[in-house]
């Protein structure tokens, strides 16, 4: 494997650079949007102790997004804050399931947020993130491999936390089981693009940036199969399309309007 040590080297091969930036956008946008949804939950969790623990995970995850945006900055894509706040819907690469609103209502008004969705979504995402980060920790692009190894240091706790919630609620009351199961069913029809790498998947593999989509998907199915009581029999789906190709829902539009509201109020300003 040819190791690419830094951004200057990566920029010399246009095909490499393109596949690399696409991958890093996906990583950055996934972590950014799920931590945005986490930030909306702040103060609304089932009990105070959980609120505090959940927020640490959210902060860590946004911290990972920052590291990925900074990699893009080095690759010449522009300033990290600009990348996070200014890109249009079509330019965003996160999986669509991750942009889904936390439930009915808004975070500051009538937030009928669903803890079952939070548990299922975060458990599914963190399970996948571990697999993906491990695959990337041996990436040909050294700076990316380094960031993945760093993210894995904290991420183990995130996964353990959500796995605990998943296990406990699945084996609690009938009501809890039903709520979790119905969110699992829903996720099953929407989660697939999170597991995918978009139209540059082959180039990513060719340049040894990450393993194949098939491997990632299999590894995820195997892992969640161990922990969920009744995995749906239907195949995985991506009901709303693929976020990896810039397809998104109104939920991401709401997110974008919210997280860029102050940023957009005065673009000349230093905040």
């Amino acid at each position: 494997m040819t190791v690419v040590e830094n951004a200057e080297q990566a920029k010399k091969d246009p095909s490499y650079l393109k596949a690399l930036t696409e991958l890093v956008y996906q990583l950055a946008d996934d972590d950014f949007i799920i931590s945005f949804r986490g930030a909306e939950w702040l103060g609304l969790a089932p009990h105070i102790e959980e609120d505090v623990a959940f927020s640490s995970i959210t902060q860590n995850t946004m911290g990972h997004a920052v590291m990925f945006y900074e990699l893009l900055e080095e690759l010449g894509e522009g300033n990290a804050d600009v990348l996070a706040h200014e890109r249009t819907l079509e330019q965003r690469r996160n999986g669509i399931y991750l942009e889904k609103r936390n439930g009915e209502g808004a975070y500051h008004e009538e937030p009928y947020y669903d803890w079952a969705l939070a548990v299922v979504r975060n458990y599914f995402y963190e399970t996948f993130k571990k697999i993906k980060m491990e695959a990337i920790s041996t990436s040909s692009y050294k700076p990316l491999a380094n960031v993945a190894s760093k993210a894995l240091m904290e991420q183990t706790y995130h996964l353990a936390h959500w796995k605990m919630w998943m296990n406990q609620l699945q084996h609690a009351t009938e009501d809890a089981r039903e709520r979790i199961n119905s969110r699992i069913e829903e996720a099953w029809s929407e989660f697939e693009d999170v597991l995918e790498l978009g139209s540059y998947a082959n180039d990513m593999l060719k340049h040894q940036l990450i393993s194949s989509e098939d491997y990632l998907k299999e590894a995820w199915l195997k892992e969640v199969g161990v922990n969920i009581a009744n995995p749906p029999e239907s195949p995985l789906g991506k009901k709303y399309g693929s976020g990896r190709n810039g397809v998104h829902t109104a939920d991401l539009k709401q997110a974008l309007q919210t997280f860029a509201e102050v940023y957009n109020s005065d673009k000349k300003a230093v905040w």
Partner: peptide
């Protein structure tokens, strides 16, 4: 918290989250 998801930069988003936490 009303301003937490809206904070204008990545650093401010992190800072205010830690503060509200």
């Amino acid at each position: 918290k009303e301003w937490t998801p809206k904070a204008p930069t990545l650093r401010r988003k992190l800072g205010i989250m830690a503060k509200v936490q």
